[in-house]
Amino acid sequence: MPANRTPSLRIIGFDADDTLWHNERFFQMTQERFAALLADFAEPEHLDARLLEAETRNIGHYGFGIKGFMLSMVETAIEVTDGKVPGHVIGQILAAGQEMLSHPIELLPHARESVEALAGRYQIALITKGDLLDQERKLAQSGLGELFDTVEIVSRKEPATYARIFDGHAPGEAMMVGNSMKSDVIPALEVGAWGIFVPHDLAWALEHADPPEVQTRFREIADLGELPALVAEIG
Protein backbone atom coordinates (compact mmCIF):
# COMPACT_ATOMS: atom_id res chain seq x y z
CA MET A 1 0.00 0.00 0.00
CA PRO A 2 1.43 3.45 -0.86
CA ALA A 3 2.59 5.41 2.15
CA ASN A 4 0.21 8.31 1.42
CA ARG A 5 -2.90 6.17 1.10
CA THR A 6 -5.38 5.84 3.96
CA PRO A 7 -6.10 2.22 4.88
CA SER A 8 -9.50 0.97 3.74
CA LEU A 9 -12.30 0.78 6.26
CA ARG A 10 -12.86 -2.60 7.85
CA ILE A 11 -15.09 -2.01 10.89
CA ILE A 12 -17.91 0.50 11.45
CA GLY A 13 -19.31 1.11 14.92
CA PHE A 14 -22.76 2.57 15.50
CA ASP A 15 -24.05 4.27 18.61
CA ALA A 16 -27.62 3.26 19.50
CA ASP A 17 -29.60 5.86 21.47
CA ASP A 18 -30.53 8.88 19.34
CA THR A 19 -28.37 7.57 16.50
CA LEU A 20 -30.38 4.51 15.48
CA TRP A 21 -33.51 5.08 17.57
CA HIS A 22 -35.17 7.80 19.63
CA ASN A 23 -34.18 8.00 23.27
CA GLU A 24 -33.66 11.50 24.71
CA ARG A 25 -37.23 12.56 23.91
CA PHE A 26 -38.50 10.08 26.52
CA PHE A 27 -36.13 11.44 29.15
CA GLN A 28 -37.31 14.97 28.45
CA MET A 29 -40.98 13.97 28.56
CA THR A 30 -40.41 12.25 31.90
CA GLN A 31 -38.50 15.26 33.20
CA GLU A 32 -41.46 17.50 32.34
CA ARG A 33 -43.72 15.10 34.25
CA PHE A 34 -41.28 15.22 37.16
CA ALA A 35 -41.43 19.03 37.18
CA ALA A 36 -45.24 18.93 37.27
CA LEU A 37 -45.20 16.52 40.22
CA LEU A 38 -42.94 18.87 42.20
CA ALA A 39 -44.42 22.17 41.02
CA ASP A 40 -45.40 23.06 44.61
CA PHE A 41 -41.81 22.72 45.80
CA ALA A 42 -39.52 24.07 43.05
CA GLU A 43 -39.55 26.08 39.84
CA PRO A 44 -38.87 23.95 36.72
CA GLU A 45 -35.53 25.64 35.96
CA HIS A 46 -34.28 25.14 39.52
CA LEU A 47 -35.50 21.56 39.56
CA ASP A 48 -33.79 20.81 36.21
CA ALA A 49 -30.51 22.18 37.56
CA ARG A 50 -30.75 20.12 40.75
CA LEU A 51 -31.58 16.99 38.79
CA LEU A 52 -28.61 17.51 36.47
CA GLU A 53 -26.36 17.91 39.52
CA ALA A 54 -27.69 14.63 40.91
CA GLU A 55 -27.21 12.81 37.61
CA THR A 56 -23.65 14.13 37.31
CA ARG A 57 -22.56 12.96 40.75
CA ASN A 58 -24.41 9.65 40.44
CA ILE A 59 -22.96 8.45 37.14
CA GLY A 60 -20.11 6.81 38.97
CA HIS A 61 -22.58 4.93 41.18
CA TYR A 62 -25.39 4.03 38.78
CA GLY A 63 -23.88 4.46 35.32
CA PHE A 64 -25.89 5.70 32.35
CA GLY A 65 -29.50 4.81 31.65
CA ILE A 66 -33.07 4.95 32.87
CA LYS A 67 -32.55 3.30 36.26
CA GLY A 68 -29.90 5.82 37.25
CA PHE A 69 -32.19 8.60 36.02
CA MET A 70 -35.03 7.28 38.19
CA LEU A 71 -32.84 7.16 41.28
CA SER A 72 -31.54 10.67 40.59
CA MET A 73 -35.14 11.94 40.32
CA VAL A 74 -36.03 10.34 43.65
CA GLU A 75 -32.92 11.82 45.27
CA THR A 76 -33.68 15.26 43.86
CA ALA A 77 -37.30 15.08 45.03
CA ILE A 78 -36.13 14.32 48.57
CA GLU A 79 -33.60 17.18 48.47
CA VAL A 80 -35.86 19.95 47.13
CA THR A 81 -38.66 19.06 49.56
CA ASP A 82 -36.32 18.76 52.57
CA GLY A 83 -37.43 15.16 52.94
CA LYS A 84 -41.14 16.00 52.84
CA VAL A 85 -41.90 14.56 49.39
CA PRO A 86 -45.18 12.62 49.58
CA GLY A 87 -45.00 8.88 49.09
CA HIS A 88 -47.43 9.00 46.17
CA VAL A 89 -45.04 11.34 44.32
CA ILE A 90 -42.21 8.85 44.75
CA GLY A 91 -44.56 6.19 43.44
CA GLN A 92 -45.37 8.26 40.35
CA ILE A 93 -41.67 8.91 39.70
CA LEU A 94 -41.01 5.17 39.76
CA ALA A 95 -44.02 4.54 37.53
CA ALA A 96 -42.73 7.09 35.02
CA GLY A 97 -39.37 5.33 34.92
CA GLN A 98 -41.01 1.95 34.45
CA GLU A 99 -42.98 3.36 31.52
CA MET A 100 -39.69 4.47 29.96
CA LEU A 101 -38.32 0.96 30.37
CA SER A 102 -41.23 -0.48 28.40
CA HIS A 103 -41.64 2.18 25.72
CA PRO A 104 -41.65 0.80 22.15
CA ILE A 105 -38.58 1.50 20.05
CA GLU A 106 -38.89 4.06 17.26
CA LEU A 107 -36.12 3.91 14.66
CA LEU A 108 -34.72 7.17 13.35
CA PRO A 109 -35.00 7.94 9.61
CA HIS A 110 -32.60 5.94 7.40
CA ALA A 111 -31.33 3.84 10.33
CA ARG A 112 -32.28 0.44 8.91
CA GLU A 113 -31.37 1.29 5.31
CA SER A 114 -27.98 2.63 6.30
CA VAL A 115 -26.97 -0.35 8.43
CA GLU A 116 -28.32 -2.81 5.84
CA ALA A 117 -26.35 -1.07 3.08
CA LEU A 118 -23.08 -1.53 4.97
CA ALA A 119 -23.64 -4.91 6.59
CA GLY A 120 -21.82 -7.72 4.83
CA ARG A 121 -19.31 -5.36 3.26
CA TYR A 122 -17.82 -4.27 6.58
CA GLN A 123 -17.72 -5.61 10.10
CA ILE A 124 -20.61 -3.85 11.82
CA ALA A 125 -20.56 -3.21 15.57
CA LEU A 126 -23.12 -1.73 17.92
CA ILE A 127 -21.30 0.24 20.62
CA THR A 128 -23.64 1.66 23.23
CA LYS A 129 -23.54 2.54 26.89
CA GLY A 130 -26.29 2.19 29.45
CA ASP A 131 -28.14 -0.43 31.42
CA LEU A 132 -27.46 -3.92 30.04
CA LEU A 133 -31.04 -5.24 30.21
CA ASP A 134 -32.58 -2.08 28.78
CA GLN A 135 -30.12 -1.87 25.90
CA GLU A 136 -30.64 -5.55 25.09
CA ARG A 137 -34.41 -4.96 25.11
CA LYS A 138 -34.14 -2.01 22.75
CA LEU A 139 -31.85 -3.85 20.36
CA ALA A 140 -34.21 -6.84 20.26
CA GLN A 141 -37.22 -4.61 19.58
CA SER A 142 -35.39 -2.59 16.93
CA GLY A 143 -35.20 -5.50 14.52
CA LEU A 144 -31.60 -4.57 13.72
CA GLY A 145 -29.88 -7.16 15.88
CA GLU A 146 -29.09 -9.61 13.08
CA LEU A 147 -27.22 -6.91 11.16
CA PHE A 148 -24.47 -6.50 13.77
CA ASP A 149 -21.40 -8.72 13.87
CA THR A 150 -20.71 -7.68 17.45
CA VAL A 151 -22.58 -5.86 20.21
CA GLU A 152 -20.74 -3.95 22.94
CA ILE A 153 -22.77 -2.55 25.85
CA VAL A 154 -20.28 -0.57 27.89
CA SER A 155 -20.34 1.54 31.04
CA ARG A 156 -18.34 4.38 29.47
CA LYS A 157 -17.10 5.40 26.04
CA GLU A 158 -13.48 6.43 26.44
CA PRO A 159 -10.42 6.07 24.21
CA ALA A 160 -9.58 2.80 25.99
CA THR A 161 -13.05 1.49 25.10
CA TYR A 162 -12.51 2.05 21.39
CA ALA A 163 -8.90 0.87 21.53
CA ARG A 164 -10.15 -2.47 22.88
CA ILE A 165 -13.03 -2.83 20.39
CA PHE A 166 -10.94 -1.72 17.40
CA ASP A 167 -7.89 -3.72 18.49
CA GLY A 168 -6.03 -5.19 15.51
CA HIS A 169 -7.21 -2.50 13.12
CA ALA A 170 -4.77 0.07 11.80
CA PRO A 171 -5.53 3.81 12.08
CA GLY A 172 -8.14 4.68 9.49
CA GLU A 173 -9.57 1.15 9.26
CA ALA A 174 -12.20 1.79 11.94
CA MET A 175 -15.11 4.24 12.09
CA MET A 176 -17.52 5.29 14.84
CA VAL A 177 -20.88 6.85 13.99
CA GLY A 178 -22.97 8.62 16.62
CA ASN A 179 -24.83 11.65 17.86
CA SER A 180 -22.55 12.44 20.81
CA MET A 181 -19.45 14.47 20.14
CA LYS A 182 -18.21 13.67 23.64
CA SER A 183 -18.80 9.92 23.68
CA ASP A 184 -18.90 8.77 20.06
CA VAL A 185 -16.65 11.07 18.08
CA ILE A 186 -13.80 12.52 20.11
CA PRO A 187 -12.60 9.35 21.91
CA ALA A 188 -12.78 7.37 18.66
CA LEU A 189 -10.69 10.00 16.90
CA GLU A 190 -8.14 9.81 19.70
CA VAL A 191 -7.40 6.17 18.88
CA GLY A 192 -7.07 6.79 15.14
CA ALA A 193 -10.58 5.86 14.01
CA TRP A 194 -12.89 7.96 11.87
CA GLY A 195 -15.42 9.92 13.92
CA ILE A 196 -18.73 10.61 12.17
CA PHE A 197 -21.07 13.03 13.94
CA VAL A 198 -24.81 12.68 13.25
CA PRO A 199 -26.49 15.50 15.22
CA HIS A 200 -29.83 14.90 16.90
CA ASP A 201 -32.32 17.65 17.77
CA LEU A 202 -32.25 16.62 21.42
CA ALA A 203 -29.08 16.07 23.40
CA TRP A 204 -28.39 15.43 27.07
CA ALA A 205 -26.39 18.24 28.64
CA LEU A 206 -23.69 15.85 29.85
CA GLU A 207 -22.98 14.73 26.27
CA HIS A 208 -22.10 18.19 24.95
CA ALA A 209 -18.56 18.84 23.69
CA ASP A 210 -16.95 21.13 21.14
CA PRO A 211 -16.11 19.58 17.77
CA PRO A 212 -12.44 18.98 16.99
CA GLU A 213 -10.87 22.02 15.35
CA VAL A 214 -8.44 20.16 13.12
CA GLN A 215 -8.94 16.46 12.52
CA THR A 216 -8.65 14.80 9.14
CA ARG A 217 -10.84 11.85 10.13
CA PHE A 218 -13.76 13.90 11.47
CA ARG A 219 -16.93 14.29 9.42
CA GLU A 220 -20.45 15.55 10.12
CA ILE A 221 -23.50 14.36 8.21
CA ALA A 222 -27.10 15.56 8.44
CA ASP A 223 -28.57 12.09 8.93
CA LEU A 224 -27.78 8.42 8.43
CA GLY A 225 -29.05 8.59 4.87
CA GLU A 226 -25.74 10.25 3.96
CA LEU A 227 -23.57 7.58 5.58
CA PRO A 228 -23.29 4.95 2.80
CA ALA A 229 -22.05 7.54 0.30
CA LEU A 230 -19.54 8.89 2.82
CA VAL A 231 -18.26 5.39 3.56
CA ALA A 232 -17.88 4.76 -0.19
CA GLU A 233 -15.94 8.00 -0.53
CA ILE A 234 -13.59 7.12 2.33
CA GLY A 235 -13.16 3.57 1.09
Rank of each mutant, 00 (worst) to 15 (best):
P109H: 11
S155M: 04
E116F: 03
I165G: 00
L94S: 02
I93V: 14
Q98W: 12
G97W: 05
I124S: 01
S142I: 12
G192K: 08
I153G: 05
V115G: 04
L118H: 06
G143T: 11
V191G: 02
Q135K: 09
Q135R: 11
E190Q: 15
I186K: 02
A205Y: 02
D149I: 01
E190A: 15
D131K: 00
A174R: 03
L94K: 12
I90W: 06
M175R: 04
P171C: 01
S142W: 13
F148G: 07
M176W: 08
L144E: 06
L139M: 13
G120W: 12
L101C: 10
L139K: 11
H88N: 13
V151Q: 04
T161R: 11
E106C: 00
Y162A: 05
A111S: 13
L139D: 08
L132C: 01
G97K: 03
H200S: 10
F148I: 09
E99M: 00
K84R: 15
Q135E: 15
P199W: 10
A160S: 14
A205T: 06
W194D: 00
D134N: 11
S114E: 03
A140L: 14
G91F: 14
E173I: 03
M181V: 15
G145D: 13
A160F: 02
P199V: 08
L118Q: 03
R164P: 00
L108T: 07
R164L: 01
G91P: 11
L147A: 02
E173T: 02
A188S: 12
R156S: 10
H103E: 07
I105C: 10
P109E: 08
L118R: 05
H208M: 03
A95L: 12
H169A: 04
G178W: 06
I186C: 00
P199N: 05
L107I: 05
H169W: 12
L189P: 04
L147R: 07
L108D: 08
H88A: 09
R121N: 00
H169K: 04
R156I: 07
L101V: 08
P109F: 10
Q92M: 13
K182F: 00
A170E: 13
T81K: 12
I93T: 08
A119G: 01
S180H: 02
A174G: 13
I90K: 04
V185Q: 06
D134V: 05
L94V: 14
D167R: 15
K129M: 05
K84I: 05
L139A: 09
H208A: 07
T81Q: 10
K182M: 02
M176S: 09
H169P: 00
A125M: 03
D134P: 00
L202A: 09
